[in-house]
Design a protein around this nucleic acid. Structure first.
Length: 474
DNA sequence: AAAAAAC
């Protein structure tokens, strides 16, 4: 398709050892669902429309067998219900496995299998005849995401005998003991800490994965930590940068961090996920956002929902008010203790809690297939004094629904000129057609939203997906 | 000025 602006760019001095992989096209054949517990039948039905669309990011012409993976990894993928690589997997894996190793910068829409892609790349580099030696390191911007990545790697590597994985997040490691795992997944602060304490020996690391790389390299503080970590790693390390978004500004940092990387990038018009119906609610005033949110509660609980707000305080405040008003909602943000955060997310994954109010801590990466609705209670803003809209955060937030070919709905609340202008500029950047909802026409809102949610519920089968493997099916 | 991330 002409408007499929997915590009693979080789660095200037093209390595002749590896053929430049073409952006793989959809083969048109049915592919497997993403989840261990997903009903195969439901997934097949749900994917019918997508198969006719060549621009879908969910399929590629290759098979996992063609990618020359080890039998153990193939077995792990199969057990997870991965039958056919998505585009980022089919195209990215050969680059990650190249010999000599090449750096990779890989951009792919939310929910298209980036985590599984780099997990395969990373696990393929592990030499199990050298046990107790850290060989791969993956970094993520939040505790929750690091834990989720750990779970995915563990699931895909399930049949790799002797493989050990450690989580370098606060409270995730035995204090003072040397890390003997082959794979370490963590947040930058903790990883830097255990390197300093000589708990982690970085000298044998072969692969460094930075997930949500645009956020990790750009963010004040996080970027420094990533640079310092990289500074103590072997010079020969292979760097893999993954994200759904790579704003131009960050590309410059990325070029320094992973020089001459092979780049897979998307035009801004291709960065949205087609399965997500994006709507906005025209609220009369900031005050009335709360009562409109309560009115939406019934729709939120048809599936699972995530409500994004700007601050920790308002997350807890809205939770308190809604509970007082008789609704069951939970809140998760960085003020909670680590173990509490793990428990809150676990309850949300299993469906024990269905409405989660949170901050940007969960904006990126979190994969819960039953999420059918995302609400932007506050429009994401950035810059000094929240002066500019934050299109990347918007895209990541709404990407908590519509995972791997499923559909979902997002509702962004606007209430004044500033919030409306910000949302418009975000929509404009990505070429989004926003559907307007009016608080005065409740029938219309219910009709529009319910259509989407019901289909998601059927698709998701109310089961957790491959990336929450420790959860139990409902 | 806010989220996040170290002890």
């Amino acid at each position: 398709m002409a408007d499929l602006a997915s590009r693979v760019t080789q660095p200037a001095p093209a390595a002749d050892s590896t053929p430049a992989p073409d952006a793989a096209e959809n083969s048109g054949t049915a592919a497997g669902g993403p989840g261990l517990w997903d009903s195969e039948a439901n997934v097949q039905v749900a994917l019918t429309d997508l198969q006719s669309d060549e621009s879908t990011p969910f399929y590629s012409a290759t098979t996992f067998e063609d990618l020359k993976l080890s039998p153990e990894l193939l077995q792990g993928l199969l057990a997870l219900g991965f039958h056919k690589p998505s585009k980022i997997q089919g195209t990215g894996i050969p680059i990650m496995l190249s010999d000599p190793p090449q750096h990779l910068l890989a951009q792919s829409q939310s929910g298209t299998g980036k985590t599984a892609a780099f997990s395969i790349g990373l696990l393929s580099r592990i030499d199990l005849s050298e046990p107790d030696v850290p060989q791969a390191l993956a970094l993520a911007p939040s505790r929750e995401l690091a834990r989720q990545i750990e779970d995915v790697i563990r699931a895909i590597g399930h049949f790799c005998t002797g493989l050990k994985i450690a989580a370098a997040v606060p409270g995730g490691l035995a204090r003072g003991e040397p890390v003997k795992a082959n794979v370490v997944v963590g947040t930058p602060g903790t990883v830097l800490d255990i390197i300093k304490r000589r708990q982690l020996n970085p000298s044998k690391l072969k692969v460094l994965v930075i997930d949500e790389a645009d956020n990790m390299l750009d963010e004040q503080g996080l970027g420094d930590q990533c640079m310092r970590i990289k500074g103590v790693l072997p010079k020969s390390i292979q760097v893999l940068l993954f994200s759904a978004t790579f704003p131009d500004k960050v590309m410059r940092y990325a070029d320094m961090f992973a020089p001459k990387a092979v780049k897979m990038t998307l035009a801004s018009s291709d960065q949205t996920v087609k399965g997500i119906s994006q709507m906005y609610m025209d609220c009369p005033s900031e005050n009335e956002k709360y009562s409109i949110l309560c009115k939406l509660y019934g729709l939120m609980t048809v599936g699972s929902s995530v409500i994004f707000v700007k601050t920790r305080e308002s997350a807890s405040e809205i939770q308190r008010r809604m509970e007082a008003d008789g609704h069951r909602v939970s809140a998760l943000h960085g003020a909670f203790e680590g173990s509490e955060r793990d428990a809150l997310l676990q309850d949300f994954r299993t469906g024990k809690s269905k409405v989660l109010i949170t901050t940007n801590v969960l904006a990126r990466g979190i994969d819960v297939s039953s999420v059918s609705m995302v609400i932007n209670y506050d429009i994401p803003m950035k810059g000094r004094g929240d002066s500019e809209p934050d299109p990347e955060t918007y895209l990541h937030r709404i990407g908590r629904t519509g995972r791997f070919g499923r559909i979902g709905v997002s509702i962004s609340f606007v209430y004044d000129k500033k919030s409306f202008t910000a949302l418009s500029s975000i929509a404009n950047k990505y070429g989004i057609d926003l559907v307007q909802l009016s608080p005065d026409d409740w029938d219309d809102t219910e009709k529009r939203v319910q259509t989407v949610i019901k289909s998601n519920r059927a698709q998701a089968g109310y089961a957790p997906s491959a990336t929450d493997p420790q959860a139990t099916p409902a």
